[in-house]
Design a protein around this nucleic acid. Structure first.
Lengths: 144, 144
DNA sequence: ATACTTCTTGACTAACTAAGTCATAATTGT
DNA sequence: ACAATTATGACTTAGTTAGTCAAGAAGTAT
């Protein structure tokens, strides 16, 4: 049930990029310094977010990264899924990356108690993270 | 955000022990066979649950494991915490194993957006798992 | 008492993942 | 041309996961 450092750093980087959105582009070292993230590790993360279509970048002097979408159109769920994989605690309840459990002694899906309870956990997590946008996140709104 | 095999197996073993509760004691190989769990790995898990005070065991012929508490007095939260550690996605929002974030650039707890959102996620997960008892679990009740 | 079955302990391993580092290449502004 | 910056991929180090294995201690029926 853990969030990796990768995702945590990714979220913190996006916090900076959201604050800068529309005005300036940020460079690796700006983000790294402000959020205390190891710069080379940050690079990997930004690259992954770029490949996922959330960011764009420019090389060379005056280069840097910036958001390619509106902060209100990016959810934390998307971010965490691209950096950490599926939100579901177990493959057989994932909606974005379903995997049949190979060894489950319960033949039918509906009857497996583990699946049932983990399904509700997945829904709770996704219910929060898929409705929490970067805009909410950066403004520190509650969304209890 | 993942549930380990250890916890999954632990839950499945407890499913069997709950079904047998009050009538018979189960032996390792019974549980292992019914739930397709590697027997030596299962042993480790049962031992951990025993140390946590959920089970008791008897040696010798006719020995085996059985629940030491009522199924309605054991929550899935307890089980998963003993096998996998804290439910919280990040140490700084754990209630059972709080850990200050060393590198967080936000001085005060309340202002860190990561902490805020992960706090709500933790509450959602714990809200489900700490209210879901073995009794609910074995009977397949919903608890949506 | 003995044999049998069981639990108990601890060490061990192979594979994977997390978290980061490093070197080098490619691009851009001046 | 040159300096600043991103891009890419290989590499490392430590820890975790998911087991396996061997030997021992202990209870029970006979």
């Amino acid at each position: 049930m853990k969030l990796s450092k990768k995702s945590e750093y990714g979220l913190r980087a996006l916090l900076e990029l959201t604050a800068a959105h529309g005005t300036v582009t940020l460079q690796r070292h700006d983000i790294a310094a402000r959020q205390h993230i190891p710069i080379e590790f940050l690079e990997q993360i930004l690259l992954a977010l770029k490949r996922a279509g959330l960011l764009t970048s420019r090389r060379g002097i005056k280069g840097g990264y910036r958001l390619i979408k509106q902060p209100r159109d990016i959810t934390l769920g998307q971010v965490i899924r691209t950096l950490d994989g599926p939100l579901a605690p177990i493959g057989c309840v994932s909606k974005t990356a379903y995997q049949k459990c190979s060894e489950c002694p319960y033949a039918t899906r509906a009857r497996c108690p583990v699946q049932q309870v983990m399904g509700t956990v997945r829904d709770a997590i996704a219910g929060i993270l898929d409705h929490y946008t970067l805009e909410d996140f950066a403004s520190g709104s509650r969304k209890a």
